[in-house]
């Protein structure tokens, strides 16, 4: 009987260790899941409430019982690029006359005349 009891006790300790490991693993999984939540895709529960996380343009699709929000890109402030383009517009406007000056030879009024 004693030997049977020892075997059973070992078995209980093993199960306890396994349970503790599972709890730690679950904790890590939740932690990792939480970190990943601030990403491009997120899923919310139903009832019409949409959950939007991260940055950028979002499209929201609602299905029965759940709402899915997907990030597809970020709104881009193009003011800087527009300013660059406007500045280039002034450049190219003046480059045309500079090209004319640079590619047209001038001549004196008495070219080739001997005094």
């Amino acid at each position: 009987m004693q030997s049977i009891h020892r075997v059973l006790s070992k078995d209980h300790r093993g199960r306890g260790l396994a349970s503790a490991a599972a709890v730690v693993a679950l904790g890590f999984a939740l932690l990792l899941g939480g970190c990943g939540h601030n990403g491009q895709n997120s899923t919310g529960n139903g009832g019409g409430a949409s959950v939007t996380t991260g940055q950028g343009n979002t499209s929201t699709g609602t299905t029965t019982g759940s709402t899915t929000t997907t990030t597809t890109g970020n709104p881009v402030a193009v003011q800087d690029l527009q300013s660059l383009s406007d500045s280039l517009s002034a450049d190219f406007s003046d480059l045309s006359s500079e090209q004319t000056n640079a590619t047209t030879d001038q001549t004196g009024s008495q070219q080739g005349v001997q005094p």
Binding site: D91, D94, L95, E98, N101, A102
Partner: peptide
């Protein structure tokens, strides 16, 4: 031509 070249250089750098 140098003036034209300089301006084009500035645009290219921009």
């Amino acid at each position: 031509l140098q003036a034209y070249d300089d301006h084009l250089t500035n645009v290219q750098q921009k």
